[in-house]
Nucleic acid binder design. Structure first.
Lengths: 204, 204
DNA sequence: CTGCAATCTTGCACATCATGCAACTTCTGG
DNA sequence: CCAGAAGTTGCATGATGTGCAAGATTGCAG
């Protein structure tokens, strides 16, 4: 990493903006928070905010692109004789493990607020769904590299099934106001359902 | 239907706006088209456009809510002894069949342009993904009504797997520039993959 | 230390989307 | 024909986002 004064200040500003945004969004709602307020809270001009983040919601999402690397790397590093479905499960497991550790610090309440925002606010929901879609796309390209028997459409279908099931289960869990524990369990259950196939209904 | 002069004019204006929007979006791109241009092309004021549609992208999407009813109704009308997976397949089949007939008239070129816009333009992509997510949510609630052995999270997982696989396969097909025929085939292949399960790789 | 170049920050003008409000027009039903 | 309902319009206003140029800060070579 570049540890020059410039780079440090830059990261500081970015971080201050992201923190201020998360705080204001959770305190008073996404729509009722203006970029001017975020900039003021981080003590920079509005124009500087837009120098760091292209849009308002990027202030919230912009730091997440790190997590998206994990499942792609896991797929690229497929182990010898590892089945495709096991590989996909592992990709998700490792991403979830990292999210719990790295997401936003280890503060559960902050993470919960973040998840609540994303699953609640239409604009953020749309943005998150799109990010997830882009991630799936990259995973599909990575998968065909290590699974030559699959074409891109087939790879996309398999990944889409796993990701779609996990996503839907997680959102539903959140909508039902379930606990943290149940939320992560729902995610895993979604992955499992997709791997087993919709034709094989879950055991009791 | 109310066939008063008022209602007819209202529908006319709506239709004119939607048509103008689709034409302008495909001709010159979504971002480079302003709401003022759309309103002018439909011969109404900008304010009237926003009376009919809450946002710019609703001018394109606003008429689609009809198609979303179909899979929910299919699920609600589950046949005796029909398996859940067969039911989900049928829900998607019937929606696709309707889309081909009803989508935007039967003009293939127009439909292709529409699909191209939705899969290409970030803002529209996000919006479409969100719509799809909402649809899945409603399907899950419908499913637990007719499949009492499932809870909401399990139902969401199954539907998410099918919808996610179909969506991912379709987007990938579009990204690869495949033909109409291949696009619909990819959709079906996605559904099939999800039903069979990611653990059971596709046969040759 | 000095000066120059690269980079970051800022203010300002401007385009666009979106909303509230009030006046005006058109349609409906009696 | 008339009174009220519904639709249309212009205007003011607020918010997001971009281009540009001037100013401040940092990095680096001499």
């Amino acid at each position: 990493m570049d540890d020059s004064l410039r780079e440090r200040k830059k990261r500081q500003t970015r971080q201050a903006l992201a923190a201020a945004a998360l705080r204001l969004f959770t305190e008073q709602g996404y729509e009722r928070t203006t970029v001017a307020q975020i900039a003021a809270a981080a003590d920079v001009s509005v124009r500087t905010l837009f120098n760091h983040f292209p849009t308002k919601d990027d202030v919230l999402f912009g730091n997440d692109e790190h997590a998206a690397e994990i499942p792609v790397r896991v797929i690229a590093g497929r182990r010898p004789r590892e089945s495709v479905s096991a590989l996909l499960v592992r990709a998700y497991e490792e991403m979830l493990a990292d999210n719990r550790v790295n997401g936003l610090g280890t503060d559960t309440a902050v993470l919960a607020g973040y998840v609540r925002l994303v699953t609640t606010v239409p604009a953020l929901q749309a943005r998150a769904l799109r990010s997830n879609h882009q991630l799936q796309r990259r995973m599909a390209y990575a998968l065909v590299e290590v699974a030559p028997e699959l074409d891109l459409v087939g790879a996309a279908a398999m990944i889409g099934a796993v990701a779609g099931a996990a996503q839907a289960a997680a959102f539903m869990s959140m909508e039902l106001g379930q606990s943290d524990r149940q939320f992560w369990a729902a995610l895993r259950r979604g992955v499992e359902t997709a791997v087993r196939g919709a034709a094989h209904p879950p055991r009791r």
